[in-house]
Computed example of a mutant assay.
Amino acid sequence: MTAVGSAAVRTVLGDVRPEDLGVCDAHDHLFLSSPRLPGQELNDAAAARAELDAFRAAGGASVVQWTPYGMGRRAADLPPLSRAAGVHLVCATGLHQAAHYTPESLDELRGRLAAVFVAELTEGIGTSGVRAGLIKVAGGFHALDAHTRWTMTAAAEAHHATGAPIAVHLELGTGALDVLDLLCGELGVPPHRVILGHLNRSPDPVVQRQAADTGCWLAFDGPSRAHHATDWRMPDAVQALAEAGFGHRLLLGGDTVVAGARSVDGGPGMPYLLRRVRTRLEAVLGTEPVRAILTDNPGRAFAVDWR
């Protein structure tokens, strides 16, 4: 698949035109493993295929997998899954919080992290031949520690070398403005190349508006966990941002991170985004604005003039 024109979304099967993504889950995971989630790994290819089939049956056409380097991406499994399910898949490079890695594995990346990101974006991940289409990094809880600054500095270097977007895990939705100060202020990444994830988990309308004012993307991703405000405050937050003129900067995702959260294992899974979140938002925004958030916006957020 080859994109027509200068901007393209880099999928595991090749570059595609932004308008060809269709209905997109802009933040999710097919494969993921972490020492912080023992026994809950997403590592079953058959289950991943079943989840993609369920998402496709609900009307989904593309999934952006935010699983970064060293967390069980199984990049070689993604192209056959994409072909079999008929769903576009975008794979990530990048690095999560230090707690998801051994100290030895992080030490091995010292001095070459940006080069690893660039290689995975332009040459491919390991021997899989799959090229990443975005860089995923993470902030801390209301703070940017030394690990965050290291990974975000490398992400910014890789962005400047390739044009790739940078997707940011905000810990419990916090630290959005600090992240933007670092990435866009100190490190010179254009705001429209930054995607803030989980901003809805800290439902501060002032911070959300301030972040939107910079020109970055705001991702409302994942159903509520216990005591989170994601579901019940999310429609009001999305409506407020849309009415303030930021509907063109919003993204929606499912963020399935453990096996029990998959729909095929009894959880909400990827179809929940279209089965419940979409219909809930349509009730306050209308059909057309929600269609644009699910289709037009991801195409623009992840499309790059690749260098």
Score class of each variant (00 low, 15 high):
117 F>Y: 05
118 V>M: 01
121 L>K: 00
122 T>I: 12
128 S>E: 09
131 R>D: 12
132 A>M: 12
132 A>L: 11
136 K>T: 09
136 K>D: 07
141 F>E: 14
147 H>V: 02
151 T>F: 01
151 T>M: 05
156 A>E: 07
156 A>M: 11
157 E>R: 04
157 E>H: 08
161 A>S: 09
166 I>H: 00
166 I>S: 04
172 L>N: 13
173 G>P: 11
173 G>R: 08
174 T>Q: 13
177 L>I: 02
177 L>E: 05
178 D>H: 12
180 L>G: 10
183 L>F: 08
191 P>Y: 07
192 H>R: 03
194 V>D: 06
197 G>A: 14
200 N>H: 14
201 R>W: 07
201 R>K: 10
202 S>Q: 03
205 P>T: 04
209 R>L: 07
212 A>Q: 03
220 F>V: 10
220 F>S: 04
220 F>N: 00
221 D>F: 08
223 P>Y: 09
224 S>D: 08
224 S>M: 02
232 W>V: 12
233 R>P: 12
233 R>G: 14
233 R>T: 15
233 R>H: 15
235 P>F: 07
239 Q>S: 14
239 Q>E: 15
240 A>V: 05
244 A>G: 02
245 G>N: 07
248 H>S: 12
248 H>I: 00
249 R>S: 05
250 L>F: 05
254 G>D: 00
256 T>L: 15
257 V>D: 13
263 S>T: 05
